[in-house]
């Protein structure tokens, strides 16, 4: 069963952010459903829709982002998609 989550990545723009983040996802065998990305005042913002499959994977995935967050000075968060649906769709 598909269970979708939203990954947001925010940080100072630099080479290799997408490569590093998507590598972590592929290592965890997570499929990406949608990506959008923009640069605002030197700040890189990326939002990805992923298929997390099972909510139990969330904590593990969060942990595996830690090294990338530290190394590149990024803030990466994962939230289940439902919360956005609830807030922005009737």
């Amino acid at each position: 069963m598909q269970k979708r989550a939203v990954v947001t990545v925010v940080g100072k723009d630099q080479v290799g952010i997408i490569a590093n983040v998507t590598t972590v996802l592929s290592e965890n065998e997570i499929n990406i459903l949608d990506i959008s990305q923009t640069i605002l005042n030197d700040f890189f913002t990326m939002i990805m829709l992923i298929d997390i499959k099972d909510t139990n994977n969330l904590a593990r995935l969060n942990e595996s982002f830690d090294p990338v967050e530290k190394e590149m000075g990024l803030k990466i968060s994962i939230q289940l998609e439902d919360v956005f649906q609830a807030m922005h769709r009737i």
Binding site: V6, D34, S36, T38, T45, I47, L49, M87
Partner: peptide
């Protein structure tokens, strides 16, 4: 789908 600005 949820828009970029809504997620933000």
């Amino acid at each position: 789908p949820i828009a970029f600005t809504e997620v933000q």
